[in-house]
């Protein structure tokens, strides 16, 4: 099984547009959107939901005012500043509650309940490029890492059932919890960057994260012609770290045009950028082994 993950560190470098193009040109694979917070791949793939499942994870403390004796132990022990006194009872702020159960455990009156939280929805869908696994965390919710792990497991299960040996995943920006979850079990990471100070700085951090987890990675410089000097610096970085440079793609309005039409850029007929994306994919397939 080959698991290929597209991430970037910095947001907006073109992860999702590239994932959609790879999904278009590759043969058998399960497509996975692991950006469960702000997923966008479905806007290009228009999935038909075949299965829709509620995502429950974590719990949230709720104080029953009838049983509260206002001792304040819960407020004292809460490390997340989530509990405050209101009149003669205490209340939990659900936005700040971490779901750690400390207040529930130490309440001398046992008047704090701990219901499970419904944090989002996940889907198995059919698309014109194959089966897709994706999700939407409810706005402002937590537990994105757990949802990412769940999607990865579902994708693996489906791949086995359908005898498919490739999982192609679009990841989240950053280097925190959801990205770390998306890295586990990955065979090859595609790092998408752009030739700007932010793009290069964020590439270096996300590359360090891959190194931390001993994962192999390659780099795509998107909008490479925007700043030739910065692109050169990124190339130097890649040589130094022995990351294969998979492609230098031009800054091309065709990508936005495809996005507005809701298609992958490679679906718009022959184009220079399309050809380069195909070549990059051939390399990725070889490197992912």
């Amino acid at each position: 099984m080959r698991e290929i993950l597209i991430i970037s560190g910095k947001g907006g470098t073109g992860k999702t547009s590239l994932t959609a193009a790879f999904a278009h040109i590759s043969a058998n694979k399960i497509i996975c959107d692991l950006d469960v917070d702000t997923p966008d791949l479905h806007l290009l793939l228009q999935p038909d939901h075949e299965k829709e499942v509620e995502f429950h994870a974590g719990n949230e403390a709720k104080i029953d005012p009838a049983g509260c004796i206002s001792c304040g132990i819960c407020e004292d022990m809460c490390r997340y500043n989530a509990i405050h006194q209101e009149n003669d009872t205490f209340v939990v702020d659900p936005i700040r509650c971490e779901g750690c159960k400390v207040c529930v455990t130490f309440c001398p009156e046992q008047t704090i309940s701990f219901p499970e939280k419904h944090c989002g929805t996940w889907y198995v869908s059919s698309t014109r490029f194959g089966t897709m696994v994706h999700a939407q965390l409810f706005p402002g919710e937590e537990n994105s890492g757990r949802l990412v792990s769940l999607l990865k497991n579902e994708a693996k299960k489906l791949a086995k059932e359908k005898n498919i040996d490739c999982i192609l995943s679009d990841g989240a920006p950053g280097i925190g919890c959801p990205v770390i979850s998306s890295l586990s079990g990955t065979n090859f990471v595609v790092l998408v960057t752009e030739p700007t100070p932010s793009g290069r700085h964020d590439l270096e951090r996300v590359a360090a994260l891959c190194e931390h987890f001993r994962l192999r990675a390659g780099v795509i410089v998107n909008k490479a012609d925007l700043n030739v000097d910065e692109t050169e610096k990124i190339e130097r970085f890649c040589r130094g770290k022995e990351y294969p440079l998979l492609a230098k793609l031009p800054h091309d309005s065709l990508v936005t045009e495809a996005m507005v039409k809701g298609v992958a850029v490679t679906e718009l007929g022959e184009s220079a950028i399309g050809t380069e994306i195909r070549q990059a994919w051939e390399q990725i397939e070889k490197l992912a082994g």
Partner: peptide, 14 residues
Amino acid sequence: APPGVSCPAICAVI
């Protein structure tokens, strides 16, 4: 603020 709409983003704007 960081991108996204989950806990880190909320933590930044709250």
